[in-house]
Nucleic acid binder design. Sequence first.
DNA 1: TATATTTCGGACAAAAATATCCTAAATATA
DNA 2: TATATTTAGGATATTTTTGTCCGAAATATA
Lengths: 144, 144
Amino acid sequence: MFSKTCEYAIKAVLYIATQSLNNTRVKIGDVAENTGSPEAFTAKILSTLTKHNMLHSLKGPYGGFEIEEKKMKQIKISEIVYAIDGDAIYNGCGLGLDKCNALKPCPMHDKFVKIRSELKKMLETTTIHELATKIKTGKSILIR
Amino acid sequence: MFSKTCEYAIKAVLYIATQSLNNTRVKIGDVAENTGSPEAFTAKILSTLTKHNMLHSLKGPYGGFEIEEKKMKQIKISEIVYAIDGDAIYNGCGLGLDKCNALKPCPMHDKFVKIRSELKKMLETTTIHELATKIKTGKSILIR
DNA sequence: TATATTTCGGACAAAAATATCCTAAATATA
DNA sequence: TATATTTAGGATATTTTTGTCCGAAATATA
Ligand code: SF4
Ligand code: SF4
């Protein structure tokens, strides 16, 4: 569904968010450890997300990553996916045809578009805050 | 959504099916040309599908691939996807957690499962024959 | 200012997915 | 039987994705 990179990104953001809900800033190592992701690779991803203004980072001692509660409520999962994987999942063709044209559709078009738009809608209506809260209250987890 | 290999596989099967509806057996080169897929790679994929008993192949002059109308009506797109990509799309986790456990779910679980089961159902209820017919009647296309 | 800590960013490495090439095996037909 | 045609399948190559390493830049604190 998503690239590995994107899975790591979502988990990282959610972990940082749960910690930010406790006013705790976290380091790359913490994120990697608590999401089951490779540390150096996670560093790359966090850097990307910071550039996309989804996280706030601070260098140096007592530095790390954090995210404001206001932002958690604003940012949707769809935006993380878009920042990492681009729009393939939203606009790409199920059969990989170059461009989509509903007037000359591939044979799965109708059925695909239905599923795809539901997925899109789901991602666009799910906030970081919503999921971070689920984790904080112990209803769900990020690593097994 | 699917791997490139799987996209090629679906398109190949559908092309062969439309030709079989006209009682025409097709060669690898025809399939590649009419689905926009690399020829040698397509050969690999067709071989796999033949082993999975989804296609019938014949070596030698006047040989090629074909699929009985009866089979077109039996085989669902879900089976092609399963043969090529395995069950990741049906059972894999959206966030890439090792195993899924609804009692200790990842925070996207509920929303994911909903979409995934709809996708699964869609693939399981779509036959090759249905899609091949759409192509044969000119309602849809396999290549642009 | 010196030091320790932490993110940033470029170069590099490994693994997986995608793709090609070539020879063998099968088979139709002349 | 000899030849041409076509799939089968192993070896190899290329590209993309995933992942590591290391030094530079920033910053807190002593
Ligand atoms: S036709 Fe439908 S499925 Fe095919 S590409 Fe366009 S949108 Fe995707
Ligand atoms: S918890 Fe839900 S989303 Fe996460 S892995 Fe299991 S099924 Fe997939």
